[in-house]
Simulated scan of single mutants.
Amino acid sequence: MSLADSGSTVRDTGVSGEQPVRGRPRSEAVERAIIEGTMKLLEDGVSLAEISIERIARTAGVGKAAIYRRWSGKEELFVDVLRAAEPQDPELPGTSMRDDLIVLLEALRLRGLANRSSAILHNVHAQMKSSPKIWAAYHNTAIEPRRRMAVEVLRRGQDNGELRADLDVELLNDIFVGPMLVRAVMRPDADLPEELPERIVDTLLDGLRPVSSATRQP
């Protein structure tokens, strides 16, 4: 899978805080070559542990300096490779908490489907767990921002009266994403139908919305 095929753009991860050398503009073509060169190595079955900056540079047809001007090391580069291969993070409609939650779960469903269909994603996700540095970089720049976004959606729901104010939004986030993660990760044979995000959200919200005094049972 190439960067062009993925429809994603390379994004700064912010892991190292390093900036490109002044006076040397970033080239999207060079970045694309580096990302696609890394993807080619992964497609050829080279493990993360065996991929070095030197090998990536040779495959991409660039110098090592071109890579280090953009990424502090291969851990940071691998995060951008993964994010280029994954579906893009969604823009929230902002119309309601329910709508935003459905969009977030739909993105998780699509990543689950991509992980099943993409050899790169499947193999790299499996290998990342044995590399604490790569996993930490991916968690900090991809997983954690998504979690914060979901928690903020739930907080806005409480502020807007769409969700009971006494609930722990951190726990609620786990409850909402849990069913999708179980199907996407722990049950690779389970279906991930298009209506699943809406079914999960509506099933949970039935018991989480505020209850008015008029409808509360005595």
Rank of each mutant, 00 (worst) to 15 (best):
A49E: 14
S16I: 09
G178N: 15
E144W: 10
R199Y: 13
E106I: 00
A142W: 06
M97Y: 09
P210W: 05
A126T: 06
V21E: 13
K133Q: 10
E54W: 05
G37N: 03
P188W: 10
S118K: 02
V81Y: 07
M1Q: 09
V21G: 01
N173P: 06
E162P: 10
V10L: 03
L48K: 02
A214I: 01
L108F: 07
G61I: 02
N140F: 07
L77E: 06
D80N: 05
F78S: 01
H139F: 06
R69T: 08
K64W: 00
A84C: 14
M1P: 12
S8R: 01
R187V: 08
D12R: 13
G207Y: 12
A190S: 13
V10C: 04
L108C: 00
A184W: 11
G112L: 03
V124E: 09
E195P: 04
V10R: 01
S131M: 00
L105N: 02
L48V: 12
L163D: 08
K64M: 04
A114E: 14
R70L: 04
E162I: 07
R109Q: 14
I56K: 07
M180I: 06
R147S: 09
R58Y: 07
E91W: 06
G23Y: 14
L92D: 11
R209C: 08
A126I: 05
V15Y: 10
V30K: 01
D206H: 14
H139I: 06
V62Y: 03
I35E: 10
G7L: 04
R187K: 04
E198R: 01
G73T: 11
A33L: 00
P210S: 05
T59M: 14
S27M: 00
L163V: 02
A184P: 12
V21F: 07
V10F: 03
E18Y: 06
V10G: 03
L110I: 08
V169W: 10
Y138G: 01
R98G: 00
A190I: 01
M149S: 04
D100F: 09
Y68D: 13
L48N: 08
S47R: 09
H122A: 05
L208A: 06
E198G: 02
I51D: 01
P193L: 00
G157F: 12
L192C: 11
A190M: 08
R156E: 06
D100P: 08
E36H: 09
R109D: 15
W71Q: 06
L205K: 04
V62F: 04
Q19L: 07
A57H: 11
W135Y: 09
A85C: 04
M180D: 13
D191C: 00
E170V: 05
L181R: 03
E50M: 10
V201Y: 14
L154F: 12
